[in-house]
């Protein structure tokens, strides 16, 4: 009897969204457990911060000051480039690329099951997190939100075996599909033709074609390209640029108001225009 209920539940959860309320209700307790499990490392960080000497802090401060200076200088050039980019896009009549707003979340848990590559973050439905939201760290794409709980959310990493996204080679513009392998530092490109322009060290960036991820964020770096005789496709291995196993904070990309209204318009008129949805097809 109970077994039948369980099996029914499995199928309901896999095929429909009717049982989401169980997840959400129990989330109040399970999210709290995740927070408590995160406490030891929080305390470790706190103790570490308390135990630092003034000298350390001064060194840190100097280093950060220098870094800030360099980054500010880069940002200055960025502003000019962005303006130029917008002008050129206007000339080409394609939609302007929008700068996305981001907000910060803390990682409070890592999925213990080695079959799955997932994270828990400390932002839930109260913080306007939504399903499918893109998650980044300072150096690249991490994944997307797959479950939003009341206090915490679950992030599916790009390295998970069930994850795939559309990417392109930054250098040549070759598009392909990047899939996870289940190993924390290995990704694979699918269906790369033998003649594709792709080499080791190439940076792969998001294309925005799946409408999930914003375009132009770095995802992975190609580490090995192997041509196997007799096979139609190259086997290409990559490693994520994001420091998935080392970062303690992540960035959530909030869609800008303009993009949201563009999407609403596109879905309302029922004929999605490629330019609005893909945030500009011309690179």
């Amino acid at each position: 009897m109970v077994l039948v209920v369980c099996i029914t539940l499995v199928f309901l959860d896999l095929r429909t969204s009717w049982v989401g309320w169980i997840r959400y209700g129990a989330g109040y307790v399970t999210d709290a457990v995740h927070y408590v499990a995160h406490l030891p490392s929080t305390m470790g960080t706190w103790v570490g911060a308390q135990a630092r000497t003034t000298e350390d802090l001064r060194d840190d401060n100097q280093r950060l000051d220098r870094q800030l200076l360099i980054l500010q200088q880069k940002a200055q050039r960025l502003a000019v480039l962005e303006a130029e980019n917008v002008r050129l896009r206007e000339l080409l009549n394609s939609s302007a690329r929008l700068d996305a707003r981001v907000f910060v979340a803390e990682i409070i848990g890592v999925e213990p099951d080695p079959n799955r590559q997932e994270l828990m973050i400390n932002k839930g439905s109260g913080d306007s997190v939504f399903n499918g939201q893109a998650v980044l760290d300072a150096s690249g794409l991490i994944g997307q939100i797959t479950q939003v709980g009341p206090l915490a959310s679950r992030v599916l990493l790009v390295t998970d075996a069930t994850h795939a996204l559309s990417v392109q080679v930054n250098r040549s513009g070759t598009r392909s599909i990047l899939v996870g392998t289940g190993h924390p530092d290995r990704l694979r490109l699918l269906y790369v033709p033998d003649t594709a322009d792709i080499t080791e060290g190439d940076l792969l960036v998001t294309t925005g074609l799946g409408k999930r991820y914003p375009a132009g964020y770095p995802v992975a770096i190609v580490v090995a390209v192997q041509q196997e005789p007799g096979k139609a496709f190259l086997s290409v291995d990559a490693r994520p640029t994001a420091h998935i196993d080392r970062s303690s904070h992540v960035l959530l990309v909030a869609p800008t108001a303009a993009r949201r209204s563009a999407e609403a318009r596109a879905s309302a008129s029922d004929e999605p225009t490629a330019a609005t949805n893909e945030e500009g097809g011309i690179q």
Binding site: L9, V33, D113, E118, Q147
Partner: peptide, 8 residues
Amino acid sequence: VLLGTVLG
């Protein structure tokens, strides 16, 4: 729910 697996 705790581990985010399929319910059941």
